[in-house]
């Protein structure tokens, strides 16, 4: 077991964890933050995407111990004083989700990407989201949502 200190959604935690414990399981089982899901176990689908110090990472392919000393943001930490992040609003308004299972990861990957490139074109957005699979929407409305959020945040 190893002791880790992490900040998740602004709350400081300190836990003893098995070295092999995946970050996603630490978040889900350890902290009961079930907004982050497992979809593929091979870091292809991106359902487990969270922000590590503001950058998107796939929490099914990181160990909890690798998050030691870092700040994690999950979808449950995106709201500010109860208000949705513009990306959450955009996903809702553009009908960019159906079953919603990929949505938290998709939203976090998009939030992270817009920090990198605040004014992307459609092709940029499609390339940027290649690591996040959605099986329901065919992506068109997801791209529109990211464009909407980019227009509001840039």
């Amino acid at each position: 077991m190893r002791r880790i200190q992490v900040s998740v959604n602004g709350v400081a935690y300190e836990h003893e964890v098995e070295p092999r414990l995946l970050l996603v399981h630490y978040l889900r089982e350890g902290l009961n933050l079930t907004g982050t899901m497992v979809g593929c176990n091979t870091s292809n689908c991106g359902a487990c995407t969270v922000l590590l110090d503001g950058e998107s990472v796939k929490s099914c392919t990181l160990f909890a111990v690798q998050a030691d000393g870092h700040e994690i943001t999950t979808v449950q930490g995106l709201q500010t004083n109860g208000d949705w992040h513009p990306m959450q609003t955009a996903f809702h308004e553009q009908h960019a989700l159906q079953c919603g299972y990929c949505t938290p990861g998709m939203i976090l990957a998009s939030v992270s990407y817009l920090k990198e490139n605040p004014n992307p074109n459609e092709e940029d957005i499609r390339e940027a989201l290649e690591g996040n699979y959605c099986r329901c929407t065919g992506y068109e409305n997801i791209v529109k949502a990211v464009q909407q959020a980019a227009g509001q945040t840039s």
């Binding site: 889900r28 933050l33 079930t34 907004g35 982050t36 899901m37 497992v38 999950t74 979808v75 449950q76 995106l78 709201q79 949705w84 959450q88 996903f91 809702h92 009908h95 989700l97 919603g100 299972y101 949505t103 938290p104 939203i107």
Partner: peptide, 16 residues
């Protein structure tokens, strides 16, 4: 959609 608020905020109730 009425379904969206839980889904975009991570409050959905998945079986897992």
């Amino acid at each position: 959609r009425k379904e969206d608020p839980n889904l975009v905020t991570g409050k959905a109730n998945w079986t897992d």
